[in-house]
Nucleic acid binder design. Structure first.
Lengths: 201, 201
DNA sequence: ATGAAGACTCAGTTTTTCTAAACCTCGACG
DNA sequence: CGTCGAGGTTTAGAAAAACTGAGTCTTCAT
């Protein structure tokens, strides 16, 4: 069976964008800019000659075709991921997808974590979110945010904020699944955060 | 669920190469050179850090890992193909994958069909094979070969060879599924063959 | 009004992929 | 043995694809 497929990167962009209903968030997940996702999706729509998204002023919606397309595509990528993990478990362990709440974002150094070279080996992508469930569903490996949970059975590491502003909580939380709390990746991220939050950072 | 995957083109190259157990044939199917497939597969093996092929002097074999990997990857690509065909049936209809037996190859013009510009819109790839079953399984859309079948229920269009050599059959056969016998693609290919086989070609 | 957010576009750059040609190894064959 | 053919591999350079960054637009909320 020879496969006749559109460009696979376009499919990937579509899948992420459709899942998030946002080019920007999809871009974060994929580690590229929103423009790149926009281009990829447009090209895909052109090669299929089928519109996949309805671009409304309020945001994105899927077209009927997109709606029908998404589940199969997601499933196929999940299958590829599973199969790959089965024969090469390490591909998993390599890089974290980090969630950062918009509030937490404000107290972190500019463009963190990109500027910190120690993290390049450990970080795949950073998306802006405050949704703890994304940790449970593995959409992100850790979440950096303010405020209390309830975190349930998740691991939480609190970091004091030295230069806390008046109306700001005094602690930043690093949330992840318990099993990930002290892997290399978490340690590297925490160390980097520590540096970034200290007065000299 | 964010997907952590190796480069998708590498996966594609692996899938085709593993199915054919030949980089050269895979390259034909994908419409690239054998070197490109070799590179893609090597890079995939590097990112997974798992060897997928055993390169023996006699040819390729899959490693255990490759053996386990292949079925899932093939299935995933088939799913992508099916889903794509479901929402964009036309992507299907566009280009033929042609099979040419090595004997037939000899009587065709050099580099046919690449040289014939009328065909670029209709031909995706050309692989060397004499296996009629590939027509049945849709691995190729048509097969150009010598000799009699049994072709069963397949459509056969015979073309007389004007300059038949002594030990050669006098007719070249164009074999395809009945439904494809007089679509635009078949017609274009037959016309090009006709020209290519005539004394002036 | 003003600002923020997100999508789009476009030119230019970076990265990836591909080709073409050389090389190497092995097996077949005279 | 030599020589040939068939693949696989490697390389530099070319071609194509993907990405960025900056600017624009629209809409919504203040």
């Amino acid at each position: 069976m020879t496969h006749r497929l559109p460009h696979l990167n376009g499919l990937r962009a579509f899948e992420a964008a459709a899942r998030h209903l946002s080019f920007k968030t999809a871009a974060s997940e994929l580690g590229v800019t929103a423009g790149a996702v926009s281009q990829q999706v447009r090209k895909l729509e052109e090669t299929l000659d089928v519109p996949l998204f309805r671009r409304l002023p309020q945001g994105l919606l899927l077209t009927d075709a997109g709606e029908r397309y998404l589940p199969s595509i997601t499933r196929a990528f999940e299958d590829l991921t599973r199969a790959t993990e089965a024969i090469a478990p390490d591909i998993n362990a390599k890089k974290f997808n980090i969630g950062v709440s918009s509030e937490a974002r404000l107290v972190l150094p500019q463009e963190w974590p990109k500027r910190d070279k120690r993290l390049t080996a450990y970080v795949r992508s950073v998306i802006e979110t405050n949704d703890i469930d994304l940790v449970r569903t593995d959409e992100v490996d850790c979440l950096i945010r303010f405020g209390d949970g309830p975190y349930g059975d998740l691991a939480v590491i609190a970091m004091p904020l030295v230069k806390a502003a008046a109306a700001q909580p005094a602690e930043l939380h690093f949330v992840c699944k318990p099993g990930l709390a002290d892997c290399r990746q978490s340690k590297a991220i925490l160390e980097s955060l520590d540096d970034g939050l200290s007065p000299s950072g």
